[in-house]
Design a protein around this nucleic acid. Structure first.
Lengths: 233, 233
DNA sequence: AAGTGGTCTAGACCACGCG
DNA sequence: GCGTGGTCTAGACCACTTA
């Protein structure tokens, strides 16, 4: 029982996970400190530390200096979500991707947009509407604003060929931001573009990205009926 | 330019991120190896390693043995999503949480459910329908199946007092699974329960969790109109 | 074959936060 | 105060992958 040799941090991690799952270590309970575990597992404290940190990151352990490490009382389930590039998402389904620009104009955004993007009241932004198609059927309706003060080149880009998302990936990568999912009812324009009935339930993803204090883009994506987002816990 | 002292791995990480953002290191470009960076930053290779691993986990760097480390060509934006416990989500909005059990019965699930949960055709499962309320207004309609073969205790649990999610957290923690978001149109029953109009667009979250090869629970949550899920990129 | 990241070690010091 | 986890170091060996 005592000589559980673990030669790598993954071994330690696996053994720790086993003890949590089988409740050798109960929920909320304090587990031995790193030094003792290092002795028990026959490895160095660094190795134990690496393993415990990994498990803690997944939410199953809570660690505090001096207080020690305990099994999470209610394990915060986390899911990891990778934001897909539309083209890839469609091609992964073995459908052909295409793209159609509907409109593109430099204009003063309405107040809610200005506010969300922290733009001054007289600022201008590039307003783009476009359609992404899978096998020539409407897949996503995109309504986007780009902060043209921050990205003047955007006004000159040709968005009939390149879609805005991919242009931004190449020209303004490495951003932070938030993404919001919700369900909305299609209005007449949206329904028409997506080829569905008005009042259809649509999945909506809204994303705003930042370069430090400056907003880069605010985009609303409306997905054709039947779409879903899947994440692994 | 050369003597960028970095005393901690967070310093190194910050400097690396700065170089990526300001394009000192271009997209797709190979960056110096760990040993060289350690010299440049005046720290040990372990410290550099720790920092680069952290950045790579966030998707901005791609690392391969022998091939070296390069700035990601198209930075896979990842978002981290923590699955909220309904009670906490509501209480964080400073609303009062309450819960109402609608029905609970042990029965043979329909084929799609059996298939998703990998249950045999004659298996029985606990079918629960319930309502979660915020300030006494319907917030979420829950339709859940619990694998009673795996969790016989569930059949005896009193789900009029404790909601199923919290019961499962206490009795079947540490699971894996998938979660799916979509938009649906409310049917008559759902609309009635949530106090909305039929055909309203509702946000739906469907989650299935596993204990190894055995399904534990399949739950469908329908949120009252206006709900959204937010994640940080 | 050789260079790169991946990992382990033993030891050290430190920062936090409980009592 | 003092035990805990957090981190850094210098050195070593290994595993993978490309050239």
């Amino acid at each position: 029982m005592s000589n559980r040799r673990c030669d790598s941090w993954k071994d330690v991690e696996a053994e720790v996970l086993r003890r949590i799952r089988t409740r050798v270590w109960q929920q909320g309970e304090l587990i031995p400190n790193e030094a003792d575990l290092a002795i028990e597992f026959g490895c160095s404290r660094s190795t134990v530390n690496r393993a415990l940190r990994a498990v803690a990151e997944s939410g199953l352990l809570e660690r505090k200096r001096k207080a020690g490490t305990r099994v999470a009382a209610n394990p915060a389930h986390k899911a990891d979500f990778k934001i897909p590039v539309l083209r890839h998402e469609i091609e992964e389904r073995k459908q052909s991707y295409s793209y159609r620009l509907i409109a593109s104009q430099l204009t003063n955004p309405p107040a809610p947009i200005r506010s969300a993007m922290r733009l001054s009241s007289n600022a201008r932004a590039l307003h783009i509407r476009a359609l992404h198609l899978a096998d020539d059927k409407p897949f996503v309706y995109e309504d986007r604003w780009i902060n043209s003060a921050l990205l003047p080149a955007a006004s000159k880009a040709n968005f009939t060929q390149t879609n805005a998302n991919e242009w931004l990936l190449a020209n303004a990568p490495f951003t932070t931001g938030t993404i919001t999912f919700s369900a909305v009812t299609a209005n007449r324009t949206e329904a028409k573009q997506l080829g569905t009935q008005p009042k259809a339930a649509l999945f909506k993803a809204e994303r705003i990205t930042w370069d430090g204090e400056h907003s880069i883009t605010l985009v609303r994506l409306l997905y054709a009926p039947g779409y879903n987002v899947r994440m692994t816990i």
